[in-house]
């Protein structure tokens, strides 16, 4: 029997973090299923899904990480996955949209958008934000599968943009894929 663990790792960035973590996983017999890594403001963060034999516990992994010889401490959180990872679940929903929101930088911009999505029961699949001088940009990837009227939602976006003095644009994810990617994911909604 095997199980899947979801591992979240954070550390001050330096060369060799991926090698260190992968070594611990390999030595415990882990099989990497999925991984997402980024560096933000000089801090390294990574989330992984790894399949282990039933005998391996989160504590075994934490012990392995704690033995990594480094000046920078590696912090990790580990959970046993309740549902096993299914490839189908990794596919984006057909009604995946991108919302770009730009406005003069001030406190609470992400909260405004987060509250709006929450009030509509809209799930955020991915989020990236950047600040360039006084301009704050948020890019949300959202699932609108359960939205019954796109027309109404667009109108509500317009009202929100006026109220919060932001520029909000809602476009289907396929438009971005079509105009930027050459590959199999293009026009997923047509091929499905």
């Amino acid at each position: 029997m095997s199980k899947q663990l979801v591992i979240s790792v954070m550390s001050k960035d330096r060369p060799g973090i991926i090698a260190d973590i992968a070594t611990v996983i390999f030595e415990l017999g882990g099989d990497l299923a999925d991984l997402n890594q980024s560096v933000l403001g000089g801090y390294f963060s990574m989330i992984l899904i790894v399949e282990f034999d039933d005998g391996i516990t989160p504590e075994d992994l934490l012990a392995g990480f704690s033995h990594i010889q480094s000046e920078t401490k590696i912090e990790a959180n580990i959970k046993v996955m309740e549902d096993s990872l299914e490839t189908e679940k990794n596919k984006l929903p057909l009604e995946t949209y991108i919302v770009t929101a730009q406005g003069e930088n001030r406190k609470g911009l992400v909260k405004i958008m987060g509250d709006f999505f929450y009030s509509k029961h809209i799930n955020v699949l991915d989020l990236v934000t950047t600040r360039d001088a006084d301009l704050y940009t948020m890019i949300f990837q959202i699932d609108l599968s359960h939205i019954s009227s796109l027309k109404d939602l667009r109108q509500e976006f317009e009202l929100l943009a006026d109220k919060e003095n932001m520029e909000l644009v809602l476009q289907h994810n396929d438009i971005f894929m079509a105009t930027n990617e050459v590959g199999t994911q293009l026009m997923s909604s047509i091929e499905n």
């Binding site: 991108i98 770009t100 699949l125 991915d126 990236v128 950047t130 940009t137 890019i139 990837q141 644009v169 476009q171 438009i175 971005f176 894929m177 105009t179 930027n180 990617e181």
Partner: peptide, 16 residues
């Protein structure tokens, strides 16, 4: 998700 600059480039093409 695509890179931010790719997304903003497409938004600009559509909107502006």
């Amino acid at each position: 998700m695509l890179r931010s600059d790719q997304i903003m480039g497409t938004v600009e093409m559509v909107q502006k």
